[in-house]
């Protein structure tokens, strides 16, 4: 079971590696990754697959609400916070 900081670090590394548009030191946990198109619409599908692996639980795309992928904080809150389980 990963800790919160490990999960956040994994998310950060994945975003930097996948995007190619931003350096790790420029990416904060509240950097808007969709609005700034750091993650493109094509990469969004990969992000969902990665989150399913990382959280070890399936994501129902139909149930996703606007804003759930806004930034690392929002992603952590929506997919990893203990309250979700």
């Amino acid at each position: 079971m990963k800790t919160e900081s490990e999960i956040r670090q994994t998310l950060r590394e994945w975003i930097v590696r996948t995007s190619g548009k931003i350096r790790a030191e420029e990416l904060d946990d509240d950097t808007p990754i969709i609005e700034r198109r750091i993650i493109s619409s094509l990469q969004l599908t990969d992000l969902i697959l990665m989150l399913e692996r990382l959280s070890d639980s399936p994501i129902d795309i139909e149930m996703l609400k606007p804003g759930v992928f806004r930034d690392i904080n929002t992603i952590y809150r929506n997919f990893f916070e203990p309250a979700r389980a």
Binding site: S40, S41, T45, P66, R70
Partner: peptide, 23 residues
Amino acid sequence: VNATDPFFNPSKNPKFLAQRLDP
């Protein structure tokens, strides 16, 4: 009202998903 562009075959189009998740 939040909306999306009228994509062809939207469920297969990641742009539609992106617009839905970030209106």
